[in-house]
Write a protein that binds this DNA or RNA. Structure first.
Lengths: 286, 286
DNA sequence: GATGATTACGGACGCCGTAAGCATA
DNA sequence: TATGCTTACGGCGTCCGTAATCATC
C-alpha cells in the first residue's frame, strides 16, 4: 500500500489517541483494520513507526506524523477549493480571528457589509493554527491571525496553500503592572534575556505559548509564573495591571509597558483568504 | 474513490502532457485506466476537471492541480524523511544552489569538508523550485536558493515542510551597460515603473522571470527585449556589459548599475536543510 | 486473566486491462 | 476516417471484518 491517505489518517489518529482500539472506534474500523493500516505503512516505508504498549511514535513515526497532518489537511483544502470553484460565491462571509485581531476582523466585516448589505456574516475567535486550517478547509472564508515573530519571518502556520494576502507588523511591548520597577529603570527597555527570571503570564490562547516566543526569539524558554486560559485580551491585561505578572503584547493595547531592546521582534498580523475580499483587506490595513 | 494519490498523479500528468493517452504511456497504464482515474476524481469532487479535445484543465481543475502537486511532493517528502530517520547519516553532502548562490554553496561545502574530510560532496545548480523539491525528496541534503522579493516576504517556494534555516537580504541593483544614460541621469536610481520601456533581459535560469519580478513588486510585467537561457551569471553580465539590455541583480555582482528607488525590493537568499548542517549555515552568513 | 495488538482467513469491493463504442478533428 | 476519450465487462488484487492467537500489564 503506497501511503494511502486512509492509512495516514489512521496513523495520525492512533498517535493522537495513543491506542489502536480507540482509533478504531473513532474511525469506525475494527481493531484489526487499524493494525493492518499501521502494518502496511510500516511495511511500505520499511520502518517501525510506533512503539506498542504503550503506543507512542518512534523517531520515524514522528517524522511521518508531521507530513501526514499536512497532507491530510491539504487533501481537505483541495476538496474545498474545487467546491468553491464550482459553486457560485456564497452570500455569507465567515471570518476567523485571533483575540488580538478581533477588532480588525470586526472592522473588516463591517466594511464588507457596507458594500453588500445582504451579506450574512459571522466571526469566530480561535488560535492561529485552527483558523488557518479552517480557512483551508473552506469552513471559514477568511482569517486574521497574529503572533510574535522575528522580523521578516512569516508566522509559523500550517502549510495549506492559502495565500497570505496582506499583513502588518507592529512593535511589541512588555506589559507591566503600574508600579513595576522596570517601568522606571530601563529607558530603552530590557532585553528578553534580562526577563528570564521575570514572572511571565502564559496565555496560550491570547499571545501563544512562551515556548513559541522563545522560538521566535531564538532563545531559551521561560517558566510561566501564572497561566491564563481565557481567550480575551481584557482578562490578560487585568492580570497584568493587577501586578500578577508580565506579558508580551502589541504596544497599542498595552497601558503600562516598555519596548523590548533585543532581540528585534515584531507583532505580526496576517490576513488569510482564498478569494481576497478586498473590503476586508482594506479595512485591515486602515 | 477518495482522492487517491495515484489518481492525483495521473491527473497532474494528464494536464502536463495535455493528453490522456500520453499520460497513460508515461505512467504505464492503459488509456482506459487514465480515463477512469479522471472520471473517479470528477465523480468524487462533483466537478468537471478537464476539457477534452483539446485536453485542458477547467477552473476547478486548475485549483485541484495546485494542491495535487503539493500533496504528491509532500508524500515523497514524507517517505524521504522517514528513510532519513531510519538510515544512519550518509557520508555525503549533496548541495543544490541557484546560480547566484553557487559561490556561497561552494564556501559552505568547503567548510563542511574541513570539518569532516571524508565527506563526499556534490554541488548541483538549478532553479529555486527544483532545488526545494529535490531537498524535500531527499535527493539533496541542503539547498541555497535566491530570488527577488518584497521586504519581509519569503521566497515563493513550493511548500514542503523543509525548514528555512537562515537567509540573507541584499539590495538589488539595476545592471546597466557601461555607457547607459541612466548611470548618469538618476542619482537615486529609477523606480521600477520608469523602466517599463527599458530593454530588459529575461534570464529565467539566473534571475527568474520578469513576471516573477512583477509579482514581487506588485506591478505590471515587462516585455523582455532579449532572452538569455544560460545558467551562468557571467553570461548574463556579459550581455549587460555589451549593452544588450538591463537586468535586476544583487548589487554585489553588478559592475555598472544603479539602485532601485521604488518599490523597495530585496534580493533574498534562503538556506533549506532538513538537518541543518551547521557548518554550511555558518559559511553562508560569513 | 483482562486488555489490547497481531495473524489467519474469507467475502466483497475496487482497480485495471481488454475490447467495443463514440465523438471530434 | 483516424485519433483519442469513454463505457462495458471480467479477473485479480486489495481492503476490511470475523475470529483465533499472542503479548503485555
Amino acid at each position: 500500500m503506497r501511503m494511502d491517505p486512509r492509512c495516514l489518517r489512521t496513523f495520525a489518529t492512533v498517535v493522537r489517541l495513543e491506542s489502536f482500539s480507540a482509533a478504531a472506534r473513532e474511525l469506525g474500523y475494527t481493531q484489526s483494520a487499524v493494525s493492518q493500516h499501521i502494518g502496511s505503512l510500516e511495511a511500505d516505508l520499511g520502518a517501525t513507526l510506533l512503539h506498542r504498549r504503550p503506543v507512542a511514535p518512534t523517531e520515524a513515526g514522528t517524522r511521518l506524523l508531521e507530513h501526514a497532518g499536512a497532507i491530510l489537511l491539504r487533501l481537505d483544502a483541495a476538496r474545498a477549493d474545487v467546491a468553491r470553484a464550482v459553486a457560485e460565491p456564497p452570500g455569507r462571509l465567515l471570518v476567523g480571528a485571533t483575540p488580538l485581531s478581533a477588532a480588525a476582523a470586526a472592522r473588516g466585516l463591517a466594511a464588507a457589509r457596507r458594500e453588500r448589505a445582504a451579506l450574512a456574516a459571522g466571526l469566530r475567535i480561535d488560535g492561529p493554527a485552527a483558523i488557518a486550517m479552517a480557512v483551508a478547509r473552506g469552513e471559514l472564508d477568511a482569517g486574521i491571525v497574529d503572533g510574535i515573530a522575528a522580523p521578516n519571518d512569516p508566522l509559523a502556520l500550517p502549510e495549506t496553500g492559502v495565500p497570505v494576502v496582506r499583513f502588518t507588523e507592529e512593535p511589541p511591548a512588555v506589559a507591566l503592572g503600574p508600579g513595576h520597577p522596570l517601568l522606571a529603570a530601563a529607558r530603552e527597555g530590557p532585553a528578553l534575556e534580562d526577563l528570564a527570571d521575570a514572572r511571565w503570564i502564559e496565555a496560550p490562547r491570547v499571545t501563544g505559548t512562551l515556548d513559541a516566543l522563545a522560538m521566535a526569539a531564538r532563545a531559551a524558554g521561560f517558566r510561566p509564573a501564572l497561566r491564563y486560559d481565557g481567550q480575551d485580551v481584557g482578562g490578560l491585561l487585568a492580570l497584568v495591571e493587577a501586578g500578577q505578572g508580565i506579558a508580551l503584547l502589541p504596544a497599542r493595547v498595552v497601558r503600562h509597558g516598555v519596548p523590548l531592546a533585543a532581540p528585534p521582534l515584531v507583532h505580526r498580523t496576517e490576513l488569510l483568504a482564498v478569494d481576497a475580499p478586498d473590503a476586508l483587506a482594506e479595512a485591515l490595513v486602515s
